[in-house]
């Protein structure tokens, strides 16, 4: 297996885990989308020097994770894949904000480091929430829920096609690398010259393939809209889930839980 093949497998297994019959999986996709959106807004609303206040959100995530019955290992792995992005975004903050902010024992932590950690923290929290949503719901059901919640059809369809297209593109890369390695077994990776022509080829191939896939879709009556087959149904459990989830989020946002707990213990 090449790294690309493995990455595709991971994406698939995330989508496939949505078919686990878990308490979270059985909830209506719309309820989960709502709570996840609330979660993301809450996470984003914290200031960049508030390191401790968002931490109670981990409780909510863990509860969701336990209810989803998705193996913890697969979450950790995917978060690790994604975190370099956050590191890249936050990496310059320590240089821009050198003024001291925190004192841990004899160590002085500058404001820049605090905001760096805060970016990383919020990114990981948000990412984990989205992974949990997709892992317990499936991309298609999430898209269907977005459509029912009033997101324009065109956007939802775009989202779904984009998601499909990732697989199409990855499969092309995979094939080319395999073909290359079979005919050049002594070279672990293609030379730069070969890579350049492969990239051009990749573009043309994936365009041609996208065209054929599109033709196949049109042949089966595609009229610009992907339709979900599974019906959505809202029940009492979904309502309770939304209330409890959003309630907890409001509590974390409005009351400074870590400080309150600290005061209680004092």
């Amino acid at each position: 297996m090449t790294p690309i093949d493995r990455a595709i497998s991971h994406l698939h297994s995330l989508d496939a885990s949505a078919r686990l019959d878990s308490p979270l999986g059985r909830l209506d996709a719309r309820a989960k989308v709502l709570v996840t959106l609330g979660f993301l807004v809450t996470v984003a609303s914290f200031g960049r020097h508030q390191l401790l206040q968002p931490l109670p959100l981990v409780i909510l995530l863990s509860a969701g994770w336990a209810l989803s019955e998705i193996p913890v290992r697969s979450l950790g792995f995917r978060l690790a894949i994604a975190s370099p992005v956050a590191v890249l975004i936050g990496m310059w903050n320590p240089l821009f904000e050198p003024e001291p902010m925190l004192r841990l024992g004899s160590m002085v932590v500058s404001a820049g480091w605090v905001s760096f950690l805060s970016i990383l923290e919020r990114f990981l929290l948000g990412m984990a929430a989205v992974l949990l949503l997709i892992g317990s719901t499936g991309v298609d059901a999430v898209a269907a829920a977005l459509g029912r919640l009033g997101v324009p059809r065109v956007l939802v369809t775009q989202l779904l096609l984009l998601y499909r297209y990732v697989f199409v593109l990855a499969a092309e890369v995979e094939r080319m690398l395999r073909a290359h390695s079979l005919r050049a077994p002594n070279r672990p990776r293609p030379e730069l010259r070969t890579v350049r022509s492969m990239l051009g080829e990749l573009l043309l191939r994936s365009l041609a393939r996208a065209e054929r896939v599109h033709a196949a879709m049109l042949c089966r009556g595609f009229a610009g809209e992907l339709r979900a087959v599974t019906p959505l149904r809202l029940g009492l459990g979904d309502a309770l889930f939304v209330l409890a989830g959003l309630g907890f989020l409001a509590l974390v946002r409005l009351a400074d839980l870590p400080r309150a707990i600290g005061n209680l213990l004092r």
């Binding site: 499909r164 033709a215 879709m217 089966r220 009556g221 087959v229």
Partner: peptide, 18 residues
């Protein structure tokens, strides 16, 4: 070129759903 949905079921259901 023909298969593009996440599962076989969804792929076969694509046409009838349309």
């Amino acid at each position: 070129d023909q298969l593009f949905m996440p599962t076989v079921f969804q792929d076969v259901a694509f046409g009838p759903a349309n």
